[in-house]
Structures are given as C-alpha cells and as structure tokens.
C-alpha cells in the first residue's frame, strides 16, 4: 500500500469521525434555516476545510507560513464561534472566546524558536529592509493601522440606538418563601395541592403523564383533569393569560408583540419544564414587581396575579400549563 493511500484513508476516517457528531448535532435543528439543508452545509464546510488543508499541506507540499496561518486560524475560529455555533452566542462571550484565541494563536506562533522565527522574520523584514516590496508594505501598514483605529473610533462615537447590554437573569433565584394572601408559602417545600391522582393521593411528578393528550373537556373525567379544566378556565377566562402567552401557550398571544422581552413561551423546553412548580407559582403570584435584585433590570410585564386570582386558581392554572404543554415540572429529588 502506498503512503498516499494510507494518508487518504486516515483523512477520510478523520472526516467521518468529525462528521458523525456534527450531523447528530446539526440534525437537532434550530436556527433560522431548515435544519436539514443548513446542517448539510455546515458539515460540508468543515469536511471541505479539513480536506483542503490536508491537500495543501501534505499532498501539494505547501506548508503555509506562520504569518499566513495565524490570521487564517483566527478567521476559522471566528467563523466557528460566529457562524457554525448556533444559536448565535452573545457578543460578550464571542469577545471572550476570541480574546483567548488571539492570545493562544500568538503563543502558538511563538512556541518554539523555529516557529517564532518563521513568524517574526517577515515582520522584521518588512520593518527593516530597504527594498521596494518591504517599503510598500511598510507604508501600507502604517496607513492601514491608523485607518483602522480611526474607523473604530468613528464607530464608537457614532450615536447608537441599540438596547443597552444588560446582565439579566431570566430565572433568578427565588426567595425562600413568599406571602400570598397572608399565607406563607415556602418555595422549597410547597406542593401543588391540586396534584391529586384518582386515588386522592398526591400525584408524583411524572405520574401525571397518563392524563396527557386527549380532551379534558368531555363529560366525566378523572379528578386531575377536572383541575386542568378549571385551570384552563383561569387561563382563557378569569385571568386571560392567553392575551400574552398565546392560545397555544407559545408566547405568541395577540398582545405579545408589544412586549420586550417577549412573554414566556411555555411550549419551549427551556421555560417551565426547567422550573419547579413553586417557582412558577412565585412568578404568577408576584409577577414582575417582585423580581429580585439579581434579575435587574426587572424587565417583565407580568402582573402580580395574587391581586386578581385566589391561591387555588394560581395552582390550578399551573396544572393546566404543564398539562397543555406536556412538560413536567422540575424536581430536585
């Protein structure tokens, strides 16, 4: 077997190994594109990049000089964090990552004496030598760098109308206990009193699965579904939660577009299914005004529903929300 064949075999193997998790991950979907096409593009991009790097370096015998490698690596990192990683990460995190990458790419170039010389020699030539090419690039550099700084300054000074960066904890730590209708509710231990099964016992989280699906509004239904019904009445009637949280509990009610941030999307696996029932109880009962210091700037239009609903109604609407979305509350057991 020729050396080339072995290398080609390994390259394919590597590409496969890399591709497998990527396909799995990209297949998970999300993002603005249709999952299938977009993930195919992503995987293709990565495989192509690896293949061409191998082709250039080993097959054609053209190792890239360090001075080219460095910005190339930087750009690859940037594309990786900015484009390939979906959904997009916030700028603060991107800046942090790119900072680390910048430092480490510099370290990479200066790891050993030979690589440092390879990296710094062209720069030294450009700065010191006295022939035309060096001179030209020198002048170009001394024009470009101040130019970049000027552009950056201009950009900075330009008045901006974007929303300010804020550190907002969407799910701040709840208080230990809250007082609803003059009753103390300890959030750590409180339980939904309407979580009752057919036998009249407390229904463990997860056991309510048997009630999921189907229609709760037909004739004779088990006790649990009766609570769901009443919760539904609160959601669509008494409180009118659907105006903001939507008919499908997806946060897209008729009023929702007026709010920023948008109302919570209960159908998203990152909201109520990540929270304990008592946390939801706290949010419903106390609304935006009771958010803790951590959750600054308290951007929530949620009203304190304890002023309009009874404690029981709040517990029932929570039952309804979980039932409707098919999620289970989080437990710490």
């Amino acid at each position: 077997m020729s050396k080339f064949k072995i290398k080609a075999f390994f390259a394919q193997l590597l590409a496969l190994i890399l591709a497998a998790p990527m396909i799995a991950w990209a297949g998970g979907g999300g993002g603005p594109f249709d999952a299938g096409t977009f993930s195919a593009i992503k995987v293709g991009l990565v495989v192509f990049a690896i293949f061409s790097a191998w082709l250039i370096k080993d097959k054609m015998g053209l190792p890239l000089p360090k001075l080219i490698q460095a910005p190339l690596l930087w750009i690859i990192c940037y594309i990786g964090f900015r484009v390939i990683l979906q959904p997009p990460i916030p700028f603060s995190l991107l800046a942090m990552y790119m900072g680390v990458c910048t430092v480490c790419i510099f370290l990479y170039c200066s790891l050993t004496r030979p690589s440092w010389e390879e990296f710094s020699h062209p720069i030294a030539v450009m700065l010191r030598e006295d022939h035309a090419t060096a001179k030209m690039s020198r002048y170009a550099t001394f024009l470009i760098i101040p130019g970049l700084i000027a552009a950056q300054t201009y950009n900075q000074m330009l008045p901006k109308f974007g929303e300010p960066i804020e550190l907002r904890t969407v799910h701040p730590a709840p208080p230990a206990s809250i007082n609803v209708h003059k009753k103390l509710v300890t959030l750590q231990t409180a339980e939904n009193p309407f979580r009752i099964g057919d036998d009249g016992n407390y229904l463990k989280v997860g056991d309510e699965q048997k009630y999921f699906g189907g229609n709760a509004w037909t004739g004779d239904v088990p006790k649990f579904l009766q609570e769901v019904q009443q919760g539904g009445v609160v959601f669509f009637g008494t409180a009118g939660c659907f105006f903001c949280h939507g008919d499908n509990l997806d946060g897209k009610g008729p009023f929702s577009f007026a709010f920023n941030p948008i109302p919570a999307n209960f159908a998203d696996p990152g909201t109520i299914s990540q929270l304990q029932e008592t946390f939801v109880f706290w949010r419903v009962a106390k609304g935006g005004p009771d958010l803790s210091r951590e959750a600054f700037p308290w951007a929530s239009a949620m009203p304190p529903w304890e002023k309009h609903l009874t404690t029981n109604e709040i517990w029932k609407v929570i039952i309804f929300e979980y039932w409707h979305t098919g999620f289970f509350p989080r437990t710490w057991g």
């Binding site: 009753k183 300890t186 231990t189 463990k204």
Partner: peptide, 20 residues
C-alpha cells in the same frame, strides 16, 4: 430570621421525608 414555617397543603404525603 428566615421564616421556616412549612406551607403548602397541610397534608403529610408519601413523597416526603419523616423530617418534613
């Protein structure tokens, strides 16, 4: 002090520990 009085339904449940 942090209030420690237990709340929620005043019913002892099988899911609780003896302490609770």
């Amino acid at each position: 002090p942090a209030e420690v009085k237990p709340a929620g339904p005043p019913v002892a449940l099988g899911s609780e520990t003896p302490e609770e």
